[in-house]
Design a binder for these strands. Sequence first.
DNA 1: GGGTATGTTTATTAATTTTTGAACGTTAAA
DNA 2: TTTAACGTTCAAAAATTAATAAACATACCC
Lengths: 160, 160
Amino acid sequence: MNGPQAAKWEMVEAGGRTAQSFGLNRLLGQIYMLLFLSREAMSLDQIAAQLGISKASASIASRQLESWGAVRRVWMKGDRKSYYAAETNLLRIVDGGLLPSLLKKLHSARIQIERSRRLLEEGDGDPDQKRFIRVRLDQAESYRSKIEALLENPIVRRIL
Amino acid sequence: MNGPQAAKWEMVEAGGRTAQSFGLNRLLGQIYMLLFLSREAMSLDQIAAQLGISKASASIASRQLESWGAVRRVWMKGDRKSYYAAETNLLRIVDGGLLPSLLKKLHSARIQIERSRRLLEEGDGDPDQKRFIRVRLDQAESYRSKIEALLENPIVRRIL
DNA sequence: GGGTATGTTTATTAATTTTTGAACGTTAAA
DNA sequence: TTTAACGTTCAAAAATTAATAAACATACCC
């Protein structure tokens, strides 16, 4: 194998391992890295062939990546195939998928804490126990909002 | 079920769902939340009983949490059982497990990029192709180091 | 020492996730 | 209107991960 190919393959494997280390499907990291290191956009067949996987798997994983904004579809004139290209701008990936998804989780965490607080106050029980849970729910909400503030902080964005 | 119990259970379930949404074992979120909302530390038997799981599962998950610094073992005088208590200080969890683990991943990413660059430069191949891969590896390393800088930035820590 | 209460490991089972080939639907060319 | 080239969906197979009971190890008590 020549230099570029060897380097690319090494990165593709590392991408797969990294994805797995975050609890994601290995293919997500592999496909992203493959596209990141490809000069031209690739069709599903090309992706599947390069990675030795079925077209079905390539299709599912590529659309997953697309939904996160990590990859985009490009159309070649005079070709019905759809091609995928990596989004190489980190901020665009962050804004287009990662950040919204984290903010959504933080939002539902807030809703959840509110719901629990309601259950706490509406039901009865030992006052001391109630007081304790109340303090902890407040603490949880305090951390939650700090994390939210962190994600939305312009200083943080500017570092990337 | 009374107020505190209902509120607690609601949070335990939410913790499990949140853990799963990050690709983690559901029990990790459930146990942490159970301990976070418990006034006293809990033994493995208590944890297992409350969540309706085996002691083996409770043991494995609790130690996992402990290794991340999210939970700590406390010893009660005159009791051979080991009890677990939630670490409720977010910064301590971040410093004691989360951050080190992310920094470790970033470190091995750097090693990986270096290895690929070596493979690229040592092997032969089309010069244009080589140049392209080189640019992308540089780009990857640039993003990697920015993320590292972000995680180590004191402003970021101060927000939490 | 023998007995008991622990936590951990292990081998197995159960559940979940990933992967696939084949069926399907769609589009556009022939 | 066929036919062919696609991408997607689906049901089943394969692989992985989670959960368990039982065996094991350890520390403590008598």
